[in-house]
Amino acid sequence: MMITKIFTPAETKQAAKEIQLGELVAFPTETVYGLGADATNEQAVKRVYLAKGRPSDNPLIVTVSSPEMAADYIADYGEFGHKLIKEFWPGPLTLIFKIKPGSLSPVVTGGLKTAAFRMPANETTRKMIAEAGVPIVGPSANSSGKPSPTTAQHVFHDMEGKIAGILDDGPTQLGVESTIVDLSTAEPAILRPGGITPDQVAHALGQSVDASQHKVGANETPKAPGMKYKHYAPAAQVLIVHANDWEQALNWASQQNEKVGVMALSETLAGDLPANVLSYDMGNDLQTATHRLFDGLRYFDNEEPVNWILACAFAEDGLGAAYMNRLKKAAGDTFFEKKS
């Protein structure tokens, strides 16, 4: 079995060398940890799919250290691209462009004539990519379908022995993946909500933006990750709980003959909880809850395994749209049903 090395921020040259050799190295961003391989090395990219157990028609994000690196592959940034890059790069925004013919392997693009590009805010990762001298693919560094990793330890749990190394720069800040905006069509559209909200995108573009295109059909090839396949799911069944339903939800939990996990705000957990409830504190607000979402799902997967998880809901606007997008996928759109 391969030994998975942990690289410190001072060892970006060593991590970059592994990328140049065609190896896989997980890397930190402000959102989640990604799984990196040379995007121009088709065999290395294929190993990413194998390591994750990822469907081959699920395209990969190309992660770059600068807009200039991305320009080698993009046919035309266009007016919208220039505006969004100026406003949000580096940062948690992924942009889909038409690419120059033959510039990237179909293994990267899922066979499409477009590709998604991102320039993360994490300086350690940008330094590694610049030292490698090539863009890297950057899907989340977890087993496909499982909660995304927000710490190097999460990555190690899923990828030990499968990848050459992990560049450890501590926990991520945002906790959910980047917003994805499709700029390959006449009108921009948000294909995945994230830390950059639709209102922020619209303000930067000076016009409205379609934020409804989050899913594709069973026979379609998705333009972006997270649109087609089940994502972020722990082993337990997740039930989403609206704020007004917690009393009944906790009463339901108390009647189960097994332990039940609860991911809720601090105020919900402040009272007396049923003896069989294991709690994970999501903090006091949406921002903290978003940051802790994947860690909470992994907590009940890896540290305190349960068969049921009750998780708090938020209104689906602003950052709440990104939070609920991930939580609904983790739960299979299943809500706790309040009994009349």
Rank of each mutant, 00 (worst) to 15 (best):
L21W: 09
L50G: 08
L21Q: 14
K339F: 08
A164K: 04
A224L: 02
A313P: 01
F156R: 08
G145W: 12
K215T: 15
L278M: 05
M1V: 13
I180G: 03
Q255I: 09
G332S: 06
A186K: 14
Q153G: 08
D168I: 11
D38H: 08
T288R: 14
A116Q: 03
Q256D: 11
E68N: 12
T63S: 03
D285R: 04
T29S: 14
C312H: 13
I163D: 10
P135S: 01
E247D: 15
G170T: 04
I3G: 01
T172D: 09
A121C: 01
Y229D: 13
G206L: 00
N142L: 11
H291E: 12
G283W: 07
L112R: 09
A51Q: 03
N219S: 15
W252G: 02
H154C: 07
P225Q: 12
E87K: 13
T12H: 00
L319C: 11
Q200S: 01
P188Q: 02
G226F: 10
I166P: 11
M282N: 01
L35T: 10
L319A: 09
F117V: 14
A130W: 01
F80N: 15
L327Q: 01
L310R: 10
D285I: 08
N219Q: 13
H231N: 06
I166D: 05
V306P: 04
Q248C: 03
A164W: 02
A243N: 10
K338A: 14
G194T: 00
